[in-house]
Amino acid sequence: MASGTTTVEHAADAATHGAEASGAGMPQLDFATFPNQIFWLLVTLVVIYFVLSRIAIPRISAVLAERAGTITNDIAAAEELKHKAQAAEAAYEKALVDARAEASRIVAEAKAEIQAELDIKLQKADAAISAKTAESEKAIAEIRAGAVKSVTAVAKDAAKEIVSALGGKADAKAVTAAVSARMKG
């Protein structure tokens, strides 16, 4: 029922008597339009196929490959730079360690030098001090000896005077002995 009366009249009628046109059946089953649709569909598919397979797909796959290559290269370059940076860091660390060792060595050296100098100076000072001490002790001993002598003489004189003042005759020898005895005691 649908197929025979289709095409133009229906298209024209569709505007005015839409119900009639649709009443004639589904447009999908209007077999008169099939050759037309199939022909143009095949044309369309062939055109799309050639556009895609001749132009689009090679181009896009080339772009994708190029991009993948670029990315790989960039990653490799970045990896290399990273290695370089790591090497530089290692070198820096090594230099730092060396410098530290050098510095501590210098410090130790200086310390040892200073210590040695200090020791010598101390020894010298000690020697000087002990010499001075000995000298002073000697002087003190002399002074003490002098003082004892003087005291003895003074005591003898004083004892003689006292004895003579008391009217006795001072025996020099006895007085000296007595004073000496007293001095000892």
Partner: peptide
């Protein structure tokens, strides 16, 4: 007429 849109003209 929901199917009119499918008419080939």
């Amino acid at each position: 007429h929901p199917l009119d849109q499918f008419i080939v003209k």
